[in-house]
Design a protein around this nucleic acid. Structure first.
Length: 493
RNA sequence: GGCCCCGUCGCCAAGUGGUAAGGCAGAGGUCUGCAAAACCUCCAUCACCAGUUCAAAUCUGGUCGGGGCCUCCA
């Protein structure tokens, strides 16, 4: 059973064969740091975080590079608006990005280079492209001559005619072809600049990724990822630059994640309908956001809405409730060395087998182009298995059930970690949810506890009308009471 | 205008040739003083039409509906 992934370049799923056995070089386009990240960035970064984790789980030594583009028109414009230095602005949003990603539970990539640290390499690629006749200097700018690169548009699968037919590009005065793009821009006053053979200037948009990826991963590497919207022009231009300069294939597998929509409409900066990660985290647990994103396949569009996040919260709670239930049992019963079960029932066997098979089924799903939605479906099966074993409560006569329960718990946590999920202590996570729910409902725990005590008295006196009145009152305020042998607990509905 | 994607149960969502995963919601049952939670059982033939095939949600053509790219954007 091998990993297959959808390669945008070929337009189909392919078996993953790394260039060097056992190793993977992966580059993912990070952010241009001029503003806070939105939920679309969250999706892209979470998706590739999971891909990174899964490749490592499969035993690959992964070198993961995710860049910061810290020099760009937008950064300069925004800095000028605020009257501050563009490098200071970039620093501010690099920090914000790091904070957001940390809260969302992202693992740190192997390298997080910044464009401005690679100016020398950028200039070297420019020179190389000019030498090879693929680029030309013009009035302090350098442009890529797309006519000279035969493979241009092979990633986005379009033709020059198609592009130009609908293009709203005004031919720049210095460009030979309106499709040509800037590799280097001559400095204007008030802009950051570096010395170059063409005079002071700064890099164009796409060149920084070609420079950083080749410096850290080599001229050819395995996986390059990013959002769909980067296919054209960004990744197309990266190919032209990198392959033009090296004469070698640039990337073996191109992976692109789908968009986040808001109310069925694409969320984008230009439409202004975007939510920042910070806004969302005021309302939702970061793990709920991650769970929501991973319940759909990474290439499908997902629709962001309160309802869908609420659904995700319920789904994730189900996992933590089950883990918590397992913990309670396991804290009461030691897992025995010998695990006989003299009276194993047929359907019990089935439950145990499904848990036994969990790793394989998970891997099978993930091996099919990182199908996290299917993988989570399998994990839900294990949840039902755990709940069932706990409900059966046959640990005295069937120690095997305890061993399987322990096994299931361990597997859920291990596989969950591949997805970046279930890292919290279940009891603590559930407590946090209760706390967060309460603060938005204007009720305090002490009041609930007091009402529970009153209800207990009523029940003792068999005054069930009174007891039920209290329960209904709480229910109408969003608090659910749960009676069991140990007493009464509560949770936020 | 050119190119491309999508349309699966009330909602979300897997499934790309062999007879529809999973979650939420719903119905019935077990448990319970009654509930809740949990467990058990039930709950879709895949927008529409016409083809290809022994066999199609999955392939082809068409229709309708939704969305994207061609411009900064994850």
């Amino acid at each position: 059973m091998s990993l297959r992934l959808y390669n945008t370049l070929s337009g189909r799923k392919e078996e993953f064969v790394p260039l060097v056995p056992g190793k993977v070089g992966m580059y993912v386009c990070g952010v241009t740091v001029y503003d806070y990240c939105h939920i679309g960035h969250a999706r892209a970064n979470i998706v590739f975080d999971v891909i990174y984790r899964y490749l490592a789980y499969c035993g690959y030594a992964v070198t993961y590079v995710r860049n910061y583009t810290d020099v760009d028109d937008k950064i300069i414009n925004r800095a000028n608006e605020r009257g501050i230095d563009s490098q200071a602005l970039a620093e501010e949003f690099i920090r914000a990005f790091d904070e957001d990603m940390a809260i969302l539970g992202l693992k740190k990539p192997t390298f997080e280079p910044r464009a401005t640290e690679y100016i020398a390499q950028i200039i070297a690629i420019n020179e190389r492209l000019i030498d090879r006749g693929l680029a030309y200097a013009s009035a302090g700018d350098v442009y890529y001559s797309v006519d000279q690169f035969p493979g241009y548009l092979k990633l986005s699968k379009r033709t020059m005619e198609e592009m130009q037919a609908g293009a709203r590009i005004a031919p720049g005065e210095q460009k030979r072809n309106p499709m040509d793009f800037a590799l280097w821009k001559a400095a204007k006053s008030g802009e950051p600049s570096w010395a170059s053979p063409w005079g002071p200037g700064r890099p164009g948009w796409h060149i920084e990724c070609s420079a950083m990826s080749s410096a850290l991963l080599g001229e050819t590497f395995d996986i390059h990822g990013g959002g769909r919207d980067l296919i054209f022009p960004h990744h197309e231009n990266e190919i032209a630059q990198s392959e033009g300069a090296s004469g070698k294939p640039f990337v073996k597998y191109w992976l692109h994640n789908g968009f986040v929509n808001v109310n069925q409409e694409k969320m984008s900066k230009s439409l202004g309908n975007f939510f920042t990660i910070r806004d969302i985290l005021k309302k939702y647990d970061p793990e709920v956001v991650r769970f929501f994103i991973l319940t759909a396949h990474y290439r499908s569009p997902i629709d962001f809405s309160d309802q869908h996040l609420e659904d995700a919260r319920l789904g994730l709670s189900r996992f933590y409730e089950a883990l918590n239930g397992a913990d309670e049992v396991l804290s009461r019963f030691p897992v025995p060395k010998q695990v006989p079960c003299p009276t194993l029932k047929g359907d019990e066997r089935e439950v145990f087998d499904r848990i036994e098979m969990l790793d394989e089924r998970f891997a099978e799903a993930m091996n099919d182009d990182f199908n996290t939605a299917l993988a989570i479906g399998h994990l839900f099966d294990a949840v039902r298995g755990v709940n069932r074993i706990v409900a059966e409560n046959r640990f005295e006569e069937c120690p095997l059930a305890l061993a399987v329960l322990n096994d299931a718990r361990r597997k859920l946590v291990t596989l969950g970690e591949v997805l970046g999920l279930f890292a919290s202590e279940p009891a603590a996570w559930l407590e946090r949810q209760k706390g967060a729910g309460l603060s938005s409902m204007g009720i305090v725990a002490a009041e609930i506890e007091s009402l529970i005590a009153q209800r207990l008295q009523a029940r003792k006196g068999r005054d069930f009308a009174r007891a039920d009145a209290i329960r209904n009152d709480l229910a109408s305020r969003g608090i659910e009471l749960l009676d069991d042998k140990e007493g009464t607990s509560w949770k936020v509905k």
